[in-house]
Deep mutational scan, measured.
Amino acid sequence: MGFKLLSKLLVYLTASIMAIASPLAFSVDSSGEYPTVSEIPVGEVRLYQIADGVWSHIATQSFDGAVYPSNGLIVRDGDELLLIDTAWGAKNTAALLAEIEKQIGLPVTRAVSTHFHDDRVGGVDVLRAAGVATYASPSTRRLAEVEGNEIPTHSLEGLSSSGDAVRFGPVELFYPGAAHSTDNLIVYVPSASVLYGGCAIYELSRTSAGNVADADLAEWPTSIERIQQHYPEAQFVIPGHGLPGGLDLLKHTTNVVKAHTNRSVVE
Rank of each mutant, 00 (worst) to 15 (best):
A234C: 05
A19D: 15
T207V: 09
P176D: 02
E157A: 14
A25K: 13
I20C: 10
S16E: 08
G242T: 03
D125F: 08
S62M: 15
L96W: 00
V194P: 00
E203T: 15
T261G: 11
Y135E: 01
L249I: 05
S191W: 08
H117D: 00
K102G: 13
H115A: 00
I20V: 10
Y202N: 07
A200I: 09
E150H: 05
F174G: 01
Q61N: 10
D29E: 11
D64A: 08
T86W: 00
T207A: 10
E157F: 07
L195Q: 00
A144M: 09
E225F: 15
D29A: 08
L173A: 04
L173W: 00
G245S: 05
I227L: 07
V146M: 08
A111V: 09
G78Q: 08
V67D: 08
A111S: 14
T109W: 14
G105C: 12
A21D: 12
V67E: 12
F63Y: 09
F63W: 07
G246T: 08
T182S: 07
L81T: 07
G246Q: 08
Y68A: 14
G43F: 11
R46F: 15
G242E: 03
N184G: 06
I238M: 13
V124K: 02
L96V: 14
H117A: 00
T261V: 14
L9V: 10
W220K: 00
R142L: 12
S191C: 02
S113K: 04
G163M: 06
W88G: 00
Y68N: 14
S56N: 14
E172V: 11
T36L: 10
A59R: 03
G163Q: 11
E225T: 06
A66W: 14
D119N: 03
D64I: 14
L204V: 12
S62C: 10
A51K: 06
D125G: 09
D214G: 10
S208K: 10
S30C: 10
Q61T: 09
L73A: 11
V237M: 04
T134Y: 02
W88Q: 00
S223N: 04
Y202T: 05
R263S: 08
G240F: 02
I100K: 00
L73Q: 02
N211P: 05
A234Y: 04
L83H: 00
S7C: 06
Y135P: 01
S264G: 12
F174M: 13
E203Q: 15
S113W: 04
K91Q: 13
A25M: 13
I186K: 00
G210F: 03
L249H: 00
G122E: 09
I238S: 01
L96E: 01
K91L: 14
F26V: 08
L73F: 03
E219I: 10
Q235E: 06
G89M: 00
N92M: 04
L249G: 01
P190D: 06
H180T: 01
S62T: 10
T222A: 12
D248F: 10
V67L: 12
T207C: 05
D248W: 09
E44Y: 15
D64M: 15
D85A: 00
A98D: 05
G210C: 04
T86I: 03
G123W: 03
D164R: 10
G246E: 06
Q103K: 12
E99S: 15
A165N: 15
T140W: 02
S22K: 09
Q229R: 11
S56W: 09
T253R: 01
G53S: 10
G245H: 05
L156R: 02
A133E: 10
D125Q: 13
E150T: 08
I58R: 09
D248C: 05
Y196T: 02
D183H: 01
L9F: 11
I40N: 15
A25N: 12
G65I: 15
T93Y: 00
E219R: 10
P232E: 08
T86P: 03
